[in-house]
């Protein structure tokens, strides 16, 4: 079975007497060590999709299997456990805890797993080294550049050794040089065997991935591999 398997997922938002179909019957499979970019125009449902994949949000209907586990009927606490163990989130606006240093930010998810202080610190240091931030560990987020902040966020996502890394426009707030650095890091992580799913607006970034999924009005419009000679699947 695939790492991720969605069957006919819908997400509806009731806005007064109008219903917004943010996701409208999505079925998709994502395998281990896949490297997927979700693209599409604004409002097409990419973020909604990613939030449901990350168990932050629940679909209105449909089936979702993650790591062979059916996650639709889990309690909020069980979902929190899944987020902690299986998923690493990377956000456009970094979403670091503002009063905690880089080190403490990266240690934070391990607290919810009851990892003791010294092991927690060692694991966080290891993750920060992985993103080349070993010498900035005691800086607060507002003492770091955007690229450095995003690397702290990536370290925080990596530290729990999750099954999937989810990134919603991870370079949206970064300049082109920093974007290249971050994308190189993602490429490396992919080569190391991580499963990465990202949402982006830029073709440049999408081209780093193995597979591009284009969304349109809450549906999958196109789902193609980036290898040039490969077959195209429409609708």
């Amino acid at each position: 079975m695939a790492l991720i398997e969605l069957q006919d997922i819908t997400k509806l938002y009731e806005m007064g007497d109008q219903t917004v179909r943010a996701l409208d019957g999505i079925s998709i499979r994502i395998e281990k060590n896949d490297y997927v970019a979700f693209i599409g125009s604004s409002g097409s449902g990419k973020s909604t999709m990613l939030n449901i994949l990350g168990c932050l949000d629940r679909p209105t209907s449909g089936r979702y299997h993650l790591n062979e586990q059916n996650v639709e009927n889990l309690t909020p606490n069980e979902l929190a456990g899944i987020r902690n163990h299986e998923i690493g989130f990377i956000f456009q606006s970094f979403n670091l805890l503002p009063r905690a240093t880089a080190l403490y930010n990266v240690m934070q998810p391990l607290i919810y797993r009851n990892v003791g202080w010294s092991r927690r610190k060692a694991m966080a240091m290891e993750a920060l080294r992985r993103v080349n931030l070993a010498e900035r560990v005691n800086h607060l987020p507002n003492q770091l550049s955007g690229g450095q902040r995003q690397r702290v966020a990536i370290a925080r996502a990596l530290v729990t050794n999750p099954s999937i890394l989810l990134a919603d426009e991870p370079t949206g707030n970064l300049d082109s040089r920093t974007t290249t650095e971050i994308m190189q890091l993602f490429d490396e992580l992919h080569r190391e065997g991580h499963t990465l799913i990202l949402v982006t607006h830029e073709d440049e970034i999408a081209r780093h991935c193995k597979r591009i999924v284009e969304m349109k009005d809450g549906r999958i419009h196109r789902d193609v591999p980036t290898e040039p000679a490969d077959k195209q699947v429409s609708n």
């Binding site: 990350g54 932050l56 909020p76 606490n77 929190a80 456990g81 987020r83 902690n84 163990h85 989130f89 979403n95 670091l96 805890l97 934070q108 998810p109 919810y112 797993r113 925080r156 729990t160």
Partner: peptide
Amino acid sequence: ICKAIGAKR
């Protein structure tokens, strides 16, 4: 943020 990275109630 805490909930996203796995904080329970």
